[in-house]
């Protein structure tokens, strides 16, 4: 992936090059590139005058950031308490089996990344799964396959176009 220096710099200048905005800048970069490319972090380090090691520190401390490229579709399984007691871990295991990856990994074809989240705050409708921002309520092991299929279809559609 090409990292555009200008793009990254525009995120930094958007926050007046203030050091306190580091987390927001990283969030912007991740939104743009789907992860935090090393090159982008170097640019941030130089422009904000923060040592790279401190930036890596922040990037690895917060769960939301990824230093690895993520798949086209992001599957997030909620691991909140309410989802847990209603079978959340079994749902995660089914996703792991179906995608043949562990939580935190991306499929080889770069189509899906599987992640867990501590709680999405939709506890009443658990177990909850979010794919690319779409919420799926009261998921069951059986529903996992059909949820994934929906996004595989999108993939095929786009390819045929």
């Amino acid at each position: 992936m090409d990292i555009q220096e200008l793009k990254v710099k525009s995120f930094v200048t958007k926050y007046n090059k203030e050091k306190k905005a580091l987390i927001s800048i990283l969030q912007n970069i991740q939104e743009e590139y789907n992860y935090l490319p090393q090159e982008a972090l170097r640019i941030v380090s130089e422009t904000l005058n923060i040592p790279l090691i401190n930036i890596i520190g922040v990037a690895t401390f917060y769960r939301a950031f990824s230093l690895e490229p993520r798949g086209k579709h992001l599957v997030t399984v909620c691991m909140g308490t309410a989802c847990h007691v209603r079978g959340g871990p079994k749902i995660l295991e089914e996703f792991e089996r179906k995608l043949n990856i562990q939580a935190g990994e991306t499929t080889k074809d770069k189509q899906f990344s599987l992640e867990i989240v501590a709680c999405l705050g939709c506890c009443a409708i658990g177990p909850v799964v979010v794919v690319d921002g779409d919420y799926y309520a009261q998921t069951t092991i059986r529903k996992v396959g059909s949820i994934l299929k929906k996004y595989m279809k999108i993939k095929k559609k786009n390819e045929s176009n």
Partner: peptide, 25 residues
């Protein structure tokens, strides 16, 4: 608005402050 980035400990007030300042929480 200061958006968190997924760290439970940032609910603790001194960690939260560190996070608003753009540091490790």
């Amino acid at each position: 608005i200061s958006k968190g980035a997924g760290a439970f400990v940032c609910g603790e007030e001194t960690a939260l402050i560190a996070s608003v300042e753009g540091r490790v929480g």
